[in-house]
Write a protein that binds this DNA or RNA. Structure first.
Lengths: 207, 207
DNA sequence: CGTGTTTTCGCCCGGTAGGCGAAAACCTGG
DNA sequence: CCAGGTTTTCGCCTACCGGGCGAAAACACG
């Protein structure tokens, strides 16, 4: 989500929401406040630090050090944003201000990585969803097609997904009704131990 | 590596090296300068951002925002450090100043994670080493014993390790002479794709 | 009721971590 | 010079996981 700058520098270029750090808040409280005040986004399902961008010439004039964040909003939430603000696909960004394109790329990469070895999908998906809907979310976030078969199996085997029991009526073209699923946990946790050598007793849990 | 604070606040407690950001440098250049100037550590094999610590009350007095780094020095390098500075095992830290213990814990966790899914071991090991020496490094960094057998196999299969051809004379208690190995690459790269669903064509390389 | 469509399930394959024990290569003492 | 002890290295086996593929399930439509 970017907003179009009205003033110089970099007028008419698109910029990430953000702002100065208040005296009584830490950086995470600050970015939550900025998003709430400036673009009325409050329903963040996940917020995490990305990196500090501190090149002395990243913005004209006096030095500005930025702490960049990755913030996610579930797909069923569509916040009303101001008129100078709009959502853009990360694969087709408009002309951005400052180093904000690099920040977006970093965020995209972080998201893709964490989707793979954590349960972060919960932060993108609605409370209930079909596997094909989840497949669309994952494909969009990762940038390549994923197999619905494997998505179902891998996430289930890791204990992240559970069926709600409900189903969804098929569309006008027919087809078997899709089962509804939910994420077991609403907090991020690492699922793939990806450890060279695990602590002796630890075993990864199967479904 | 910590230095003992001489002055208030938190006199006689142990503190991470660091300092203010100069007008013409970014945060990484700054931490490299601080380490070189203050404790004469210049041979850093790896440096990466950890996180921003910005709690308004993390230090007494005016607000200080810190960008914490993880910096590694190979085991065969033993920089001479000032008299008020000393190395401490992360498992047995002395009384630390401010939030520096939390920073150390974060760094330890980051190191353990990256040792598992990247080739970051190259940043801890000397140019040549035996498997048992590498095992000691990994065990110390991870905090638990690892099997020399699997360490050899896993790192070799991932294409990270290669034999130099040389061997080391066994100690006075005998034993087969240990073969020497080196890391193939001296730059950090992710080895475990740990992707839920890989891009259709990508395959991980075997040895 | 048959055909087409979409989803779901089962089977099989290859690759990887990991355990375990045997073999290799050396030292020391008799 | 040989026997026993020590350390390292290698090979075999198992379990598990990602992944491909095709069959089966469940529905809409004519």
């Amino acid at each position: 989500m970017l907003w179009e700058r009205a003033r110089e520098p970099h007028a008419h270029r698109w910029s990430l929401p953000g702002g100065g750090l208040g005296d009584l808040e830490d950086v995470e409280a600050s970015i939550r406040r900025q998003l709430a005040e400036k673009v009325d986004v409050r329903q963040l399902s996940h917020v995490e630090q990305l990196a500090v961008f501190s090149n002395p010439k990243r913005v004209p004039g006096p030095r500005v050090v930025a702490t960049a964040f990755l913030g996610l909003v579930p797909s069923h939430i569509d916040p009303v944003v101001p008129s100078d603000t709009a959502w853009h696909p990360v694969d087709a960004l408009p002309a951005t201000a400052f180093d904000h394109e690099a920040i977006c790329r970093r965020a995209r990469h972080r998201l893709a990585s964490k989707l793979s070895y954590t349960n972060l999908g919960f932060a993108l998906a609605p409370p209930e969803f079909t596997i094909s809907a989840l497949r669309s979310l994952y494909s969009a976030a990762l940038g390549y097609k994923v197999s619905a078969t494997n998505l179902q199996r891998v996430l289930s085997r890791r204990g992240l997904l559970e069926p709600t029991g409900g189903t969804v009526q098929p569309g006008p073209s027919g087809g078997r009704p899709a089962a509804l699923f939910r994420f077991v946990s609403g907090e991020m946790r690492v699922t793939d131990p990806f450890a060279v050598l695990r602590p002796p007793s630890t075993r990864s849990l199967s479904s």
